[in-house]
Design a protein around this nucleic acid. Structure first.
Lengths: 196, 196, 196, 196
DNA sequence: TATGAATGAGCGTTCATTCAT
DNA sequence: GATGAATGAACGCTCATTCAT
């Protein structure tokens, strides 16, 4: 009980802090070790390289996020309500790990192609979930029956991507403002999706 | 006539190639010099540092792009036509300088704050142009009169951001597929904006 | 027992050799590392920069020298005997670290102001010791009672400085010749200080 | 008449300023060219290298100084008066070209051996002049007849060297204080040289 | 298992010098 | 002669990684 966290998790937490503070290239393994309270060599017991540590961290974060989306949307009653929840979770995620998100980009060039494929898959998975929700919405009559669910899913995904974009480039954006913007974007999209 | 390009431009071109190939951090000044066919020292006659060379390159690209948007939209008849053109220009730009766009992200952490401010301004400028076009569309009756032009502009900007996102993360996307996706996204948005 | 010298001292020794051979500016860290039998990076484990390594080396040398002066003069019976010892120690020191002394000058411009202040203090300390010895000499009757101890100390210090000067500019001067010259200089000064 | 100074002298003057400001190693040929108001390439029309420019400058300065000593001492009536004049000229010289004197040291390692020989010769010449003056003083009865003129000359030269030493290491020393110190040193030496 | 001292490949930058004009 | 754009050798320093303990 004294040692609740495994050393591995300790390191991941420390890496999150340090990568977020300095970006991938300027983060130093030594600082991560220091932050984690372990020796420099210990990092290499758990992760084979700086790159791998970064990827692990990234995968960790994304998987948690995806799980959260799945769990939370399950609780929401209708399609629009589910999509709004997804939008809000995106806002929350972006704000809370804005720095780490930036790191994603900073480290992007370092990601090996397998990893990039993985990112695309996750992306696709998310879009697929959105598509399903839209189809539910069409079935339930929330959306108009002639709506192209694939195109609508892409439009909504695009809106989510824009959150990413805003959060990355704009330091001062707080969660509330971001959420408000996103609501407006979503509303326009919903307008285009709903029965008239 | 033999030397049409100024040495400065030669270097910028070479930098574009090399930065695109390796990302900001892994690009070597020596390779840029080699690619440009000049000596390493010559780079520093025209640019004070690797960072400044990168920023110059970036500013160059964005300004050309903005000019193109202004010029091209002027030629388009209606609001929707203008917005479609903007979307297509974005696709074209992203595909043609996908690598450099990625570099933007890779080098993002290196950008000084003045530069980041500049990026935000450019962003704002673009959104403002879109808003104006939408207002024109409302005035001309292309869009419904109760449309919130600000929100709609953000929605459309968001769609543009999603292009960025797709292009960055998906190597295999070609311009045609991207354009198709974007059309679909735009269509949903337009649906939300038009009179019913 | 196999490793009597600490790595730090190994580096200092190597630095002494290399700085002496090439001067501050032309000495290369790589050569120092090679001379010390360690890797280039190791230098930076012990010294933060070339400049700091140099200063450390310098401080080391001067402190040893000052200690030697204090120890040795304590053993000498009279004032003149003490002063002669100081002169001889100066000769010895200059000859044995002539190269390093030159380096002092070569690196002088690089010394930060704190360090320069330190040099002046050491200088002052040495002059003060000489003044005390002279006052002892006056008290004991070795020197004439109306002697201005401060002025005399400066004269003697000046003579010591001249050793520095000679050693720096004259490669071929050996310790014996230098000592002889210094004796003569000192004799003239003593003549001016003694009772008639 | 518009161009009183030859380009060569213009460059030497500029070099004096720049070397004094930055030391040998940190002085840049470009800055010297700028200071002289000529192109960088022009420097190489008159001086084959940075080193040679520096040596030329040094030789220039020393020769002027030696000439001044010869001229001024010729005007002084007695031996002591001549020696005092030499001391004062040294003070003046050191203060007025303290920076350049320091440069001497900074550039010392760069001086080729011929040049170092030349410095020693100049040194010897100066000592010889002092010896002659002392011998005149002995002949005229200003100094005691049993004085060893060689040793006395070295003592006096040593005092001069000490001026050099003080000026180099102590930034704050002004000409008046330095002169006062030197007088005191000289007085002690004179005491040792004079009849009792 | 955990460590951290040691490593050395690697790179951005400088600046004396050259040479075509 | 005068110029300054172009050059590239040179070097201080960093930091991910290793390995003896």
């Amino acid at each position: 009980m004294a040692e609740e966290k495994s050393k591995r998790d300790l390191i991941l937490d420390a890496a999150a802090v340090v990568f977020a503070k300095h970006g991938f290239h300027n983060a130093k393994m030594e600082e991560i070790a220091g932050e984690a309270g372990v020796g420099k060599g210990t990092l290499y017991e758990y992760f084979s390289s700086k790159q791998q540590l970064f990827q692990e961290l990234f995968v960790n974060g994304v998987e948690k996020f995806i799980n959260q989306i799945n769990t939370e949307t399950a609780k929401c009653p209708g399609a629009i309500s589910k999509l709004r929840k997804i939008a809000l979770l995106h806002c929350h995620h972006m704000i809370n790990s804005r720095d780490l998100t930036r790191v994603t980009m900073d480290g992007h060039g370092q990601l090996n192609s397998d990893f990039r494929r993985w990112i695309c898959e996750v992306q696709a998975q998310k879009t697929k979930l959105i598509k399903q929700i839209i189809e539910e919405g069409i079935a339930s009559g929330e959306f108009r029956p002639d709506l192209d669910s694939q195109a609508a899913a892409m439009a909504f995904s695009g809106a989510m991507a824009s959150i990413f974009h805003i959060a990355i480039f704009n330091d001062k954006m707080d969660e509330a403002s971001l959420a408000k913007q996103v609501e407006e974007i979503a509303d326009v999209i919903f307008k285009g999706m709903q029965k008239m």
